Amino acid sequence: MMEVDKKTFETEVLQSAGTVFVDFYGDGCVPCQALLPVIHGYAETYGDKIKFCAINTSKARRLAIGQKVLGLPVMAIYQNGQKIAECVKEDATPEHIEKMIQDYYK
């Protein structure tokens, strides 16, 4: 799983060919920390066809707001630079996240 920041987000996510999964997390977000091992497991399982990235919104607040990430956790799928699916806050459960990944695992 690739860690991106405000300098590399555009290149690694918005300009990337194919499907990109982005884990938006924050330093003080307990649910984000709880989901971390689950997301790493999904990266191992589905990483052959989907690029997995994570960005710490505590260090990239403007970028997060620009991507309409206003609460955490947020898991999003991007294709051709566009956010096409996301799981937000209470919906960001392992089951919902895996279902979203499977929908774009092609």
Rank of each mutant, 00 (worst) to 15 (best):
M1F: 08
V4N: 03
V4W: 00
V4A: 02
D5P: 09
T8K: 00
T8P: 01
T11F: 06
Q15V: 00
G18I: 11
V20A: 12
V22A: 04
D23P: 12
F24I: 00
Y25G: 01
Y25L: 03
G26P: 12
G28Q: 13
C29N: 10
C29M: 08
A34R: 09
A34W: 00
L36G: 12
P37Y: 05
P37H: 05
V38P: 07
I39G: 01
H40A: 14
G41C: 05
A43R: 03
E44G: 14
Y46P: 03
Y46R: 09
Y46M: 07
K49A: 09
K49R: 13
I50Q: 00
R61D: 03
R62S: 12
K68I: 04
G71T: 13
P73Q: 01
P73N: 01
V74P: 11
V74R: 08
M75S: 01
Q79Y: 04
N80Q: 14
G81E: 05
Q82K: 15
K83A: 07
A85P: 05
E86R: 08
E86D: 13
V88I: 14
K89Y: 12
E90W: 09
D91H: 12
A92D: 10
P94C: 00
H96L: 10
I97Q: 06
I97P: 03
M100W: 02
Q102E: 10
D103L: 07
Y104R: 00
Y105G: 06
Y105I: 04
